[in-house]
Simulated scan of single mutants.
Amino acid sequence: MSDNAVPTPQAAGPFRSSIMQVEPQWIDYNGHLNMAYYNVMFDRAIDQLWAELGIGPAYMKERQGSTFTAECHVRYLREIHLGDPVEIAVWLIAADEKRLHTFEELRHADEGWVSATSENMSIHIDMTRRKVAPFPTDIQQSIGRMLQAHAALPLPEGLGRAIGMPRKKD
């Protein structure tokens, strides 16, 4: 789908990325996927979602708008290894005129278990001024359609988690 396409709401489930493979240079000395590369795969999935919403590379080139990540919380739940196929599910949790709140699950594509999650706040940037700015109306409408479709889905496990030491019971 092109950057300027109108997405079809995916009420049956969250947005799903293409299947990706863990690359050899991403494996660390522990023999598993290095933490930094989880973010690479999450980012690739977001790029695919942004293209569905009309805010991918063509949007940047033609309309001088883009998104920056303002906040990110990653949870590493199970190891991924070299050669493992992965797919990322993305929920659009909330949005306003300048921000997008997303939640992603990185799953083993064959076996279905969750390896990691990433919760993010992205902001829309007017790249001519490099300042936060509202999305154009047509993009807000595209976002609104997906947001409405995703609002019908159950919330993903782990949404809204904060980092902290477990409290001891008295």
Rank of each mutant, 00 (worst) to 15 (best):
M1Q: 11
S2N: 15
S2W: 06
P7I: 01
P7C: 06
T8K: 15
A12L: 05
A12I: 02
G13F: 04
G13E: 07
G13C: 04
F15G: 02
R16Y: 05
R16K: 14
E23T: 04
I27K: 14
L33G: 05
M35G: 08
Y38V: 00
V40H: 15
V40W: 01
V40S: 13
V40R: 14
A45L: 03
I46M: 13
I46G: 01
L49I: 05
W50K: 14
A51C: 13
A51M: 10
L53E: 11
I55R: 04
P57E: 15
P57L: 08
P57M: 08
Y59E: 08
Y59W: 13
R63W: 11
G65D: 10
T69W: 07
T69D: 04
E71G: 08
H73K: 12
R75A: 00
Y76C: 01
R78E: 11
E79D: 12
I80P: 05
G83N: 11
D84C: 01
P85L: 01
V86D: 12
I88P: 04
A89L: 11
V90M: 02
L92P: 08
I93G: 04
I93E: 03
I93L: 04
I93V: 15
A94F: 06
A94I: 01
A95P: 11
D96F: 05
L100Y: 08
H101K: 10
H101P: 04
E105L: 01
H108C: 05
H108S: 10
A109I: 02
W113H: 13
A116R: 04
S118Y: 00
S118M: 03
E119V: 00
E119T: 03
E119Y: 03
M121I: 14
S122K: 10
I123E: 04
I123L: 13
I125Q: 07
I125G: 06
D126H: 11
T128N: 14
T128K: 15
R130D: 08
K131A: 12
K131F: 02
K131V: 04
P134F: 00
F135G: 12
P136G: 07
P136A: 05
P136K: 04
Q140C: 10
Q141E: 14
G144W: 06
M146Q: 15
M146A: 09
A149F: 06
H150R: 07
L153P: 09
P154M: 00
L155G: 02
E157C: 00
L159C: 01
M165L: 07
P166S: 08
P166E: 01
K168L: 09
K169A: 14
D170K: 13
